[in-house]
Write a protein that binds this DNA or RNA. Structure first.
Length: 808
RNA sequence: GCCCAGGUGGCGGAACAGGUAGACGCACAGGACUUAAAAUCCUGCGAGAUUCAACCCUCGUGCCGGUUCAAGUCCGGCCCCGGGCACCA
């Protein structure tokens, strides 16, 4: 009987016999199977961990059995806020708690029984790792892909740190859900926008969930249009970005964001007071208030005018908070007749509207035929867009351009538990990069953690005070640390040789082992980790450190396991499922089998105690039939008759289906096929007086091999009991035999006008007249065909025989 | 508001490329074994009508319509649920 003791027995065996060892020099084709690494939390593994790592281990073992040189590493994303917040509460140093947690977590991961070579592990908080995270920063810095800027940034009032745009959800912090406000600060950025086009264009090549690709596409948000310059009274060229240059003759005013630096220049004395008041009001609004589409639009006139480059029309310059300063030029040309927002604004302030596209009521926002546009009249919008931009280019008053929603990645954080940014500030030399030989810039260990809006490192004199690497005079260190997403943006590269002391990774080794063949992890990383990792890979490629374009060829998101009540598991609801409880009762394999069988992997769903019981039953059923077959003296025969053919048919169908289902991450149907085989085996065992024992044993042996990735401990135990010397994982994945895949005869559905009226027994290749004969010979079918006129017969061999009759 | 997924028995979920809807499992019911129960094994199990009994008799994949010999699957419109973006000019 299968139990937790069997898990332990084989986990020990695998370790002692180095069954999970990865050999970089193997001549077999590589398969890099990766799951998103975890944050080492203090509590035990939850169902989510099992659901991520269990099924993906099945895939990994399957690939190993198929003859691939499996690379399946595991590590820890160990920098980050939870450890620091815990330290603030408990006084326990993050380094202590993190190391303890990793120890616990690794022991728990080993209890799952994963095919992992723990020689290839990493912890992002160790100096051996973050030295190279700092190195990544250095090479980006040297190549102008990392820069420092004074800019408005997102500030989490509770975490007391800045956040990247990607980490702000509905105006709230992605982690703690506190309100996020705007602050102007000196911060570090990675120039991800340099890669906007490639990140977007290469999405098509990825075998990722369509949804995730769509989210990234929208996040990057490329729009094509034109930059148009409007000369102002002050003889300054005011630039705007528009996707609708075809509506240029309909521009009746310009609007700038209130915080735009140019506002001051255009504000006339008599408008100074209202403008300043408006700017102050706008500043006080939170992002949520300001970007709410329900809010009525507001704005004020600056007092200045500009001239439309195409017809010299004099138009007023307004400011309004419906314009976003960080997108485009922070100034837009307003066409109230053909834009809903401009229409709303113009209606409120009684501004002029000029219709330039033929169509329905204004605001008419679709493309159409131009009117009131001089020589462009009667032209279609699509053509006019090109022609008008051509003219602007000639006039030197505009050009074709594109804009992105994506902004540069803000990577600095005002927190302690992260990789220090390797920069020193010197009074003489300014901003100086710490040279590679001085890396890592170590995090000091004795520190006061209280968050006060500045990096806790700012209070650590021994850390701050240093000498300038360039001139050797006293200098001060950068006290911000790197976003933990920087650490996780390159870990899949470090895995390939995590003990390398000379470099972050070896070019030849990463080129050999990467890209990752399948990457499994949560869908919530679509606009964060998954976009950052792609960017870092592309940047490293361009800097000559590797030669592939994309880190993750295939991506799968696991769903979420809910509580038995159908809602998200939470302590407050009391619907939490603790894997440990079930592990003791049923063993790892049963727990893993249930997670694979009970849900669609990408969907997840509610937990069921009855459900896991059924998988325990299934495992015992396999055990029981195995014992019976191997320990009973049967009346033997050695012929292959109908019964044997039927067993072989189900077996080969199972091998084929399981192979295909695993490729498609359809674990539930794969296990269903295994159940069908066992059911068939029971039938054979019970219904036949004489048995082909040799055939059953061979068949079962192939079955247990394909079952081993799903239930590795149990299968290894059975394999051992069968008298095998080697591990079942030294086996080869069985291939199916075409001969037994097809049955001699099937029940061919017979239809009348597309409705089923019965079946006849036929072979898959039987000709039409033979089927017709069988139909008329069948009493019940024949009865239905009296007095009807068959107009047409559609016969798809092996599929359907449909007779079309005249309707009465 | 826009974009993307999804809606199938009492339940979890299957269904290749349009070709027997409901695989496999749970729950339930009946039977075998047992002194009995549990466990195990076997059988049945979408709804309805009809029937001594049985049946491929009718209906049925969120709703309405269409294409087709044939629709869970394709097309058009709508409803609901989940996710993403949200004044991006």
């Amino acid at each position: 009987m299968y139990s937790k003791e069997i898990d332990k027995k084989w986990q020990k065996f695998w370790q002692e016999n180095k069954i999970n060892k990865f050999d970089i020099n193997s001549s077999k084709p590589k398969y890099y199977s990766l799951e998103m690494f975890s944050y080492p939390s203090g509590s035990n593994l939850h169902v989510g961990h099992w659901y991520n790592y269990g099924p993906s281990d099945t895939l990994a073992r399957f690939k190993h059995l198929q003859g691939y040189n499996l690379f399946h590493p595991m590590g820890f994303d160990s920098f980050g806020l939870p450890a620091e917040n815990y330290a603030i509460k408990s006084g326990i140093h993050p380094n202590t708690s993190t190391n303890d947690n990793i120890k616990t977590m690794r022991a728990q991961l080993e209890e799952i029984g994963l095919m992992i070579d723990w020689d290839y592990t990493l912890e992002t908080h160790s100096p051996e790792y973050y030295k190279w995270t700092q190195w990544i920063f250095s090479i980006l810095y040297k190549n102008k892909l990392a820069y420092r800027a004074y800019a408005p940034v997102n500030w989490c009032t509770s975490c007391k740190t800045v956040l990247a745009n990607e980490q702000v959800v509905d105006g709230h912090c992605e982690r703690c859900e506190s309100e996020v406000i705007q602050k102007k600060l000196n911060q570090w950025f990675f120039k991800i926008t340099d890669y906007a086009d490639e990140l977007l264009d290469k999405i098509d090549d990825l075998d990722w969930p369509e949804k995730t690709k769509k989210i990234q596409t929208n996040w990057i948000g490329r729009s094509y249009g034109a930059e148009v310059e409007f000369k102002t009274e002050e003889n300054i060229n005011l630039k705007v970005f528009t996707t609708r240059p075809d509506t240029l003759y309909g521009v009746t005013y310009l609007v700038m964001a209130p915080e735009n630096d140019l506002v001051e220049i255009f504000t006339k004395d008599e408008q100074k007071q209202v403008v300043t008041e408006y700017q102050n009001t706008a500043k006080k609004l939170t992002d949520i208030e300001r970007t709410s589409t329900i809010r009525e639009k507001t704005g004020v006139f600056t007092g200045s005018y500009a001239y439309n480059p195409v017809n010299n029309k004099k138009i007023p310059i307004w400011i309004s908070d419906y314009v976003i300063n960080s997108y485009g030029t922070g100034c837009v040309m307003a066409v109230p007749a053909h834009d809903e927002r401009d229409f709303e604004f113009a209606s409120k302030y009684d501004l002029e509207m000029i219709k330039v596209i033929e169509g329905g009521d204004i605001p008419y926002c679709d493309d159409g035929i131009l009117i009131n546009s001089m020589q462009f009249d009667n032209m279609d919008s699509k053509v006019a867009k090109e022609k008008i931009v051509e003219m602007l280019t000639k006039l030197n008053m505009g050009k074709k351009t594109k804009n992105y929603r994506l902004k540069d990645w803000l990577v600095s954080r005002q927190r302690y538990w992260g990789a220090p940014i390797p920069i020193v500030y010197c009074d003489d030399c300014g901003e100086v990069l710490v040279p590679e030989k001085d890396l890592p810039v170590l995090l000091p260990t004795h520190i006061d953690f209280k968050p006060d809006g500045e990096s806790p490192l700012k209070r650590c004199e021994t850390f701050i005070n240093t000498t300038c690497p360039r001139c050797n005079k006293p200098a001060k260190r950068e006290t911000d640390t790197l976003d933990t997403f920087v650490c996780s943006s390159w870990y899949y590269l470090r895995y390939t040789d995590p003990k390398d002391k000379e470099k972050a990774f070896d070019k030849d080794i990463v080129n050999k082992l990467l890209p990752v063949d399948t990457y499994i992890g949560g869908a919530e990383h679509a606009t964060m980790h998954l976009i950052y990792a792609r960017f870092i890979t592309k940047a490293l490629r361009d800097l000559g450190y590797l030669n592939f374009d994309e880190p993750f060829l295939r991506m799968i998101h696991q769903g979420m396991i809910l509580g038995a009540d159908g809602s998200k598991m939470s302590k407050s609801r009391g619907n939490t499922i603790l894997p440990d409880d079930y592990l003791n009762e049923y063993g790892s394999d049963v727990f893993r089998l249930y997670l694979m069988f009970g849900f669609t992997y990408q969907e997840g769903g509610p937990w069921s105690d009855e459900g896991i019981k059924s998988l325990s039953r299934f495992v015992n059923r396999i055990d029981a039939i195995f014992e019976k077959i191997y320990n009973t003296k049967y009346n033997e025969k050695n012929t292959i008759d109908e019964e044997e053919k039927s067993l072989l048919h189900v077996e080969n169908r199972t091998i084929k289906a399981v192979t295909e289902d695993l490729e498609a991450f359809s674990f539930n149907t794969a296990i269903a096929r295994c159940m069908e085989y066992i059911n068939e085996l029971y039938k054979y065992e019970q219904n036949n007086q004489e048995k082909n024992v040799k055939l059953i044993k061979e068949s079962f042996s192939r079955f247990i091999t394909i079952f081993s990735p799903f239930a590795p401990h149990f299968s290894e135990e059975i394999w051992d009991k069968m008298g095998n010397e080697n591990s079942i994982f030294n086996n080869c994945w069985p291939t199916y035999n075409e001969e037994y895949l097809e049955l001699d005869s099937i029940n061919l559905p017979i239809q009348l006008n597309g409705k089923l009226i019965g079946t006849v027994s036929a072979s898959k290749k039987e000709n039409e007249s033979s089927i017709k004969e069988k139909v008329y010979q069948d009493e019940k079918l024949n009865k239905r065909l009296v007095d009807v006129e068959i107009i047409k017969v559609i016969y798809v061999p092996g599929r359907i025989y449909n007779m079309v009759i005249k309707k009465q």
